[in-house]
Design a protein around this nucleic acid. Structure first.
Ligand code: MN
Ligand code: MN
Ligand code: MN
Ligand code: MN
Lengths: 219, 219
DNA sequence: ATATATTTTTAGATGATTCTAAATTATATT
DNA sequence: AATATAATTTAGAATCATCTAAAAATATAT
């Protein structure tokens, strides 16, 4: 059994390690959870004792098989709750994160399976992130950043890399949303900005920063 | 701001004081939360400092106005979540308590107002307990224990005093549920047991223990 | 009104999580 | 290779919530 705090550490480590593959440094964790490296040092030793990560002094940590399973359970809950908030309670996609951050720690296997069924077993959350199934299997589809598309290319917006309220509200303003079709009308070599058409109608300017954080599936 | 633990103490104190009226003793709180009196002694001093209860050494505590407001907010959340679990996620009424005990601590005013609207502003929870509105106003209707009814009297089951899974499953077995019509067919002076008819059909025996924990509204 | 029993509080300790400051190890630069 | 810089760990302390054991206050029973 992991505490709420331990779950948050493990989830952050899992995300930083891109699916449990890479080694993660103490400072990277501290940055991600907004704690001090000293606190992280303590905690990763505890998580190593609980066998959810493998810790080597001064070398960072790696998520174990058990750790990956535990992390995916929390992520599954987080994303299912986000779907619930958006689809059932009419939250906007920029309002769900902090609440889901709390709800993901509710302990009840029955609750999460019933919620999943109630929502119709959704495959992605409101930000396009895939929802692991009860066995922890994730279904990922090939996606690339919008700003990597060639001139004239057409694609569909599938996910956002940045889920911050600020970025999401900016997308709302642009008229960009998951499922929207986009076409590259112009590309600026100079600053990597582009002009794109959304849904065959609106034309908007996209900075490099924005283009990198929109993930699309090419037609 | 109250911590999760403080909220649980305050809620227990509020319930023990019957709506914030009565003085509550240290031992009573310890029994209710399954802690030791020493721990309660510490905590009630903290809650007094936070002005949600008024503590007099050796004399127990009383809930303040602010305390009552805070307690009712937690109770509102608890009961709304119970309605959600039963009505939307098909939980049985004996399965909801432990989960609601966790969900009641989620902090998000938006969430609770949206949930309330989503559920259609329910007035009672699955155990017949009234749900305080956003202002903390509770709508109570006159109810009495089933075992106080006279022979031949007819009434409708409105609530249960005991929400333990064991009791609720017993009621399921008897065929008793909220909204069911009952009629007193026989009363035993000796042990306060009775024979009642449910929904004009089933006839069942009810012990004193059970009769005291079923609340009805007389026709 | 004493003595006894019960309730309540305090003292001291523990585990969890966090912090600052200091020490240690690893990495980068000359 | 020696030195400077950066990353990491440890030491020591704080806060929160809990406990056991002991002390103090209140209530009950002769
Ligand atoms: Mn969290
Ligand atoms: Mn998300
Ligand atoms: Mn609770
Ligand atoms: Mn209830």
């Amino acid at each position: 059994m992991l505490s709420l705090v331990e779950e948050n550490y493990l989830k952050a480590i899992y995300h930083l390690s891109e699916g449990g593959q890479a080694q993660v440094s103490t400072n990277a964790i501290a940055d991600a959870i907004h704690t001090k490296p000293a606190s992280v040092s303590d905690m990763i030793q505890k998580l190593d004792r609980k066998r959810v990560i493998q810790y080597t002094k001064y070398q960072g940590v790696k998520v174990t098989k058990e750790g990956k399973e535990a992390a995916l359970k929390v992520i599954r809950k987080h994303r299912l709750w986000e779907v619930f908030l958006v689809e059932q309670l009419n939250f906007n996609w920029d309002e769900v994160h902090d609440v889901a951050e709390q709800l993901e720690h509710i302990k009840s296997p029955l609750l999460i399976e019933r919620l999943d069924a109630f929502l119709g077993h959704p495959k992605v959350d409101p930000h396009g992130d895939p929802i692991p199934d009860a066995q922890g299997v994730i279904n990922t589809k090939p996606q690339k950043p919008l700003h990597q598309l060639d001139l004239g290319a057409e694609a569909i917006i599938r996910a956002v890399k940045d889920s911050s309220p600020a970025f999401l509200r900016h997308l709302d303003k642009l008229g960009a949303y998951l499922g929207a079709g986009v076409k590259i009308l112009e590309k600026e070599e100079f600053d990597n900005s582009m002009q794109i058409q959304i849904d065959q109608s609106t034309v908007v300017f996209i900075s490099n920063e924005v283009g990198q954080n929109i993930l699309v599936q090419e037609n």
